[in-house]
Nucleic acid binder design. Structure first.
Lengths: 202, 202
DNA sequence: GTATCTACCTAACGTTTGTTAGAAGTATTT
DNA sequence: AAATACTTCTAACAAACGTTAGGTAGATAC
């Protein structure tokens, strides 16, 4: 059993977590190396023992953010019985994404908040993991489509953009004191699956 | 007829527009007074003839952002015939919001992008206009509900948050070169109204 | 017990930051 | 033509920025 975690690794993690939280709250340019250091009870210069630059911290935060939500959704979709209802598969995926976004760590929320305002070269370095995550959803939605579960005029790509966008936007207002994530996931799944209007207009 | 626009007003507008665009692209802290000035072919010091501080520019940008989208949606909803279908009213509101967000000016998109990462006191100064805009949607959705157009288990507040969130999130990926805003509005309206799944699960 | 390695600190560097005071140029008014 | 307002400029300020070099304390190795 190898549960030993070196001091270096602990410090690295602490720095990345602090950076993620602060980036999420104040934006990339709004957070200084000194503030990140202060948040882990260090001095600014010490950060450079673990990272070569602020940009490197940013890059790692962004990548971890997508990896976490990817893993959460992949897990949620992997162990579903063959005969699971389409809406229940959807609920699992939605729930996985929302938990990764709104719970525990700030990596995913930092990514959602700051990705578009970060230097373009750094956006590019995050593209691979992003595309992999998008592909996961795309595959799921295309399977639904081919199994005949989607409306004919709904195209998977547009749906995916709308769906993930709607989920990510919860970050702007969700407050754990005012409701459970699982209830939120249920409400979203319900509207996404059945729509809001009683009459159908197709 | 009073179409005279003073030099001061022209400069003020130019500064605010530049600031909105830059804030949207790089975040609040990522934009310096010198960059704003450069964008309107001025020097940084000159900005202080029109504004007392960077915070004041920010505050005005945020307020204008909400006011523009509010006006767009209010307009879209105001001149609808009495017998308009629920889905068509929805389409008008959605279309109004998306046009204000994705077209022409950057005020609304700047607000969506940076609101949560600006100092709390400035968020507070934007609360009144935000609440007014939220109330506009809330009123619209409650009317739909009371007229029996919404599913029984859909509550207007949650729906409003999801709906506006989904619309705002288009900002992260929409590209006018790859599609019209009106088509986007149609697709979103369709899914929001009818849902994505063919079978109903209520 | 000396030497090496690890993880952090101190102190400084050049640059950029928001902001200000006062000069300078341009319109407008008298 | 002189005087008054209006708008922008220049030049500087103290503070904060990312980053670097070199030092220090404690653990580990020989």
């Amino acid at each position: 059993m190898q549960t030993e975690i070196s001091q270096t690794d602990k410090s690295r993690d602490r720095i990345l977590s602090s950076a993620a939280l602060l980036f999420c709250e104040h934006g990339y340019a709004g957070v200084s190396m000194r503030k990140i250091a202060e948040n882990c009870e260090m001095k600014a210069g010490s950060l450079y023992y673990h990272f070569t630059s602020k940009d490197q911290i940013l890059t790692e935060v962004l990548n971890i953010g997508i990896q976490k939500v990817h893993a959460a959704v992949a897990d949620a979709l992997s162990d579903t019985p063959k005969d699971t209802l389409a809406i229940d598969k959807l609920r699992r995926a939605v729930s996985g994404h929302l938990h990764a976004l709104l719970e525990n760590s700030s990596f995913t929320s930092a990514n959602v908040r700051i990705f578009r305002q970060v230097p373009e070269e750094i956006q590019l370095s995050n593209l691979d993991v992003r595309r992999a995550y998008e592909a996961l959803w795309e595959k799921f939605l295309i399977e639904l489509k081919e199994a005949g579960h989607l409306h004919a005029n709904v195209d998977p790509r547009s749906l995916r953009l709308m769906l993930i966008g709607a989920l990510n936007a919860t970050l702007e207002w969700f407050d754990p004191k005012l409701g459970e994530i699982s209830e939120l996931a249920d409400r979203y799944t319900n509207i996404l699956a059945n729509g809001m209007l009683r009459e159908r207009n197709l």
